[in-house]
């Protein structure tokens, strides 16, 4: 019995961490280029609604995720225009994007009344049914929806792009010294637009996966329940490194899953305390890790191209 619960928990941990990982990989690039995309919480929320809605109407998850990506692109352009071109405060812009997203998803969801009691089809597993029966690794790994595998694959890709490609080098350079990057002949503005759009697409797709890989429902209001902020924390805890951030996301996914599992069991600890757990861990982890992490030098600062 306990064995099954643990297996189930491990399985859910990985499944829950997939959207976090995808979102975090985008955010790493944005933050490495010196911009905190605080709006990922809201963008994720929009992606979640978009994913469910499109999947419901188009009956295709591929189309749904593609729609999420397009939505992310548009939102990313807005965020980039504000924070890069207009040099608005990144925290405020992000928080307002979140407020906007809560309002917008409520309004749209109230229009799409048909969807309230229907659930969209969820993702299937990557590996054939027969493999799910292998002890331990079967249920934990092979029964995972294919998005989990994609998330892990994306983390490796992100690591390669950041450290081994020219564009990755440019991103690492621009966050630490935008002036130097500009004088080396690169466009700081363009790079920041690229990373912000990338992070927004990642967040939106992650939102889509959040619903499509698990419940298939959209719940207005608190659907993402602060996961965007957990991603932000995971990026910091992971020291802006894709691999370490992936593990941080898995850890947070595991606490999230544990909380859900324990809610259903007869537990002496009130479930609300378990729900707090990811946030408490985040604060504690931040406190422990922040000293050791190497923060990108212009983290959160606006770039003024005219100042040379």
């Amino acid at each position: 019995m306990t064995y099954e619960i643990i297996l189930d928990w491990l399985q859910a941990s990985l499944r829950w961490s997939a959207p976090l990982i995808i979102c975090a990989m985008g955010e790493i690039f944005a933050e490495r280029s010196g911009i905190i995309n605080m709006g990922i919480e809201g963008i994720m929320l929009c992606g979640a609604l978009c994913g469910v809605a499109v999947s419901y109407y188009a009956q295709s998850q591929a189309v749904a995720l593609f729609a999420c990506a397009i939505l992310g692109l548009v939102l990313g352009l807005i965020v980039a225009f504000l924070t890069v071109s207009r040099r608005t405060n990144q925290v405020v812009t992000g928080l307002m994007i979140n407020l906007l997203a809560i309002g917008a998803t409520n309004v749209i969801f109230s229009v799409l009344t048909v969807m309230r009691h229907k659930r969209a089809t969820t993702f299937g597993a990557l590996f054939p049914e027969s493999m799910h029966r292998i002890p331990l690794v079967g249920p934990v790994l092979f029964a995972q929806p294919f998005t989990t595998w994609i998330a892990i694959f994306i983390a490796f890709i992100a690591s390669f792009v950041l450290y081994k490609t020219r564009w990755g080098l440019n991103v690492r350079a621009v966050g630490d010294n935008p002036q130097a990057t500009a004088t080396a002949g690169l466009s700081v503005i363009k790079l920041k637009y690229q990373t912000l759009i990338l992070s927004s697409i990642a967040a939106s797709v992650a939102g889509g996966i959040l619903t499509l890989a698990s419940s298939g429902y959209f719940a207005a209001g608190g659907m993402t329940g602060g996961r965007g902020f957990i991603v932000l924390a995971a990026v910091v805890v992971g020291g802006w490194d894709p691999m370490r951030t992936m593990f941080a996301c898995m850890l947070f996914g595991a606490t999230d899953a544990a909380q859900l599992r324990l809610q259903t069991t007869e537990s002496i600890i009130p479930t609300q305390f378990l729900q707090m757990l990811p946030y408490v861990i985040t604060v504690v982890a931040l406190t422990i890790m922040v000293k050791r992490s190497r923060v990108p030098k212009t983290w959160g600062a606006a770039y003024d191209g005219r100042r040379s």
Binding site: V91, A233, Y279, T282
Partner: peptide
């Protein structure tokens, strides 16, 4: 510790 992250996390708590 970045106060934006910390305050928002504590709000959820």
């Amino acid at each position: 510790v970045n106060e934006v992250t910390a305050t928002i996390m504590l709000s959820y708590v």
